[in-house]
Design a binder for these strands. Structure first.
Lengths: 130, 130
DNA sequence: TAACTGTACTATAATGCATAGTACGCATAA
DNA sequence: TTATGCGTACTATGCATTATAGTACAGTTA
């Protein structure tokens, strides 16, 4: 599914959270799709189940997962993404500082606009064929 | 100069690093300009001098500061920003995931392009962050 | 010399991360 | 019913990071 970088300064559970977010945002994981159980995911990544549980709880808090005891964990529908307003504010600030630093390091406006086109923004939708 | 958020989950020395980077990128601090001494900065922010020293060392490692023992710490010239290539790669990846998440949360292309226009592409301005 | 500067240590306390292990309630299939 | 797998909730331990306090030394400058 994805790999964990044990040498990274980023916490393992944060890496798990970010990887799942990427998969959901990219449309690889669809709403109401079941994700691997805490224990299975721990086996697959060879890390402790408690670490996966922490990541799943975090994903649930951020509105990307919902869990049913005894059944499993599932992908939320985008509309239910909690705290979107606050998160969007955070992302806009992050966008601003990222662009500013890129410019400071010599990136041209054209180069950044090109990056923008490569993000799938122009397509705007998730491919339904898979 | 700037404020530290003690309630933030981000480490104090990281906040100091980020704030100085913002000031340099925005052009508020010019190349070869002297920054407050480790001890003065610690007094101003009411935190430990060792924490400031750690931040200054980090800023030196990242190419934003240079220090002269007995004289003080100073702002580097942009061209000397070390490891730019690797950093640019990081920033582009961050740019990509930020835009993708903004789109996922419902931000329109126009809205993001408007954000782009508001950044320091033409001029520089400092802002608050958390 | 005196007062500054950066820098390098030691030591301590607090916090977060990841691990191991145990246990409980719920859902489903044999 | 029993067994299995699921999420969840604990306790406890080891480790790394962070922030603190204190001391010390070398270079710079008035």
């Amino acid at each position: 599914m994805f790999q964990i970088d044990l040498k990274s300064r980023k916490a393992i559970y944060e890496q798990v959270v970010d990887n799942f977010k990427e998969l959901i945002i990219a449309g690889v994981l669809k709403p109401d799709e079941k994700v691997p159980s805490v224990r299975d995911m721990a086996k697959e990544l060879t890390i402790n189940p408690n670490t996966i549980q922490k990541a799943y709880r975090e994903l649930e808090n951020r509105g990307y997962f919902y869990s049913v005891s005894g059944l499993g964990s599932f992908v939320s529908v985008p509309a239910e993404a909690a705290g979107s307003s606050h998160r969007i504010k955070e992302l806009k600030e992050l966008f601003r500082s990222t662009v500013n630093e890129l410019v400071f390091l010599g990136c041209s406006k054209e180069e950044i606009l090109k990056l923008m086109e490569e993000t799938g923004l122009s397509k705007g939708k998730v491919d339904e064929n898979d």
